[in-house]
Amino acid sequence: MSVKPPQLNRRQRQLVQCAPFNEQRIDDRSMRAAVFRVKKTEAFHHQLAFDQAVANLVQAIPIPHQVTEWLSKGTFVAPKRRTWRQIMFNPVVVAIAIAVGVIAGIFVFKLMERLNEFPGEPTAKRLLSVASSTKTVILDPIKTDAGALSDLFFMKHRLAHYDVPPEFADFKTLGCRVFDDEEAQRIAQIWVVEKKMQFFLFPADRDPKSGAVQHFDGWRYVDQDRWTGVVQEKNGVCFMAAVRGSEKDLAAYVKDAK
């Protein structure tokens, strides 16, 4: 025990002076650090031995029988209450909060997605892929108003109610075609001058049990591979205007779209 006493500042000397002799009671970081520095010195060794001897004597002080009968040792001190701050910054709580946040985020995202879903959305998305890969050469060139093609579709292809809505009826067309998609549905595709937009007309989804058309109100947005479409259902036929871009590019034409 001939370790040279380390240089301690006044605060550290004070902490060592009143450091609990039971190491388990030292919960203060600066006190622990100060004690660590003097741990091997003779003076601190004497202090510890002194305190331990006194504590042993204190433990030997007889406690009246009536007192020991009342309460067992340890019930006098209530367990330490955690503050809100301690609870909030507990790693377990933080981890749970992050997990709950992520789950809630996914749930909200899925919910929003479900709220925006509409019958025929998968077909609309598929047709957006078609739009992105379509070249003008595969369409029959035709220059007229988009609204005028309804008669053509009915007369030539027997497609009833394949009508272009009034919002897009005046747009000048470049070409059109009618084809069967992979689900054997008859699809009408129109290419217009305005923003190189493409229109699609396709049968609305039907209830698999009853066969009834699944209607939905107003305009609905759908997007796929940087293409955005806005879809409306009328008389069992869906109309979609598709454009390469975002909802903003279509918002001017359909103001109440969801």
């Binding site: 004070q14 002076q17 009143c18 450091a19 009671r25 919960d27 203060d28 504590a55 001190v77």
Partner: peptide
């Protein structure tokens, strides 16, 4: 202190002392 039941912080609370005062005592 010699009851060996309290941490330093608890001792300060119970004695209503500051660390230098407790150390001196």
């Amino acid at each position: 202190f010699y009851l060996d039941e309290f941490s330093h912080e608890e001792l300060l609370m119970l004695t209503e002392l500051k660390t230098p005062e407790l150390a001196k005592c």
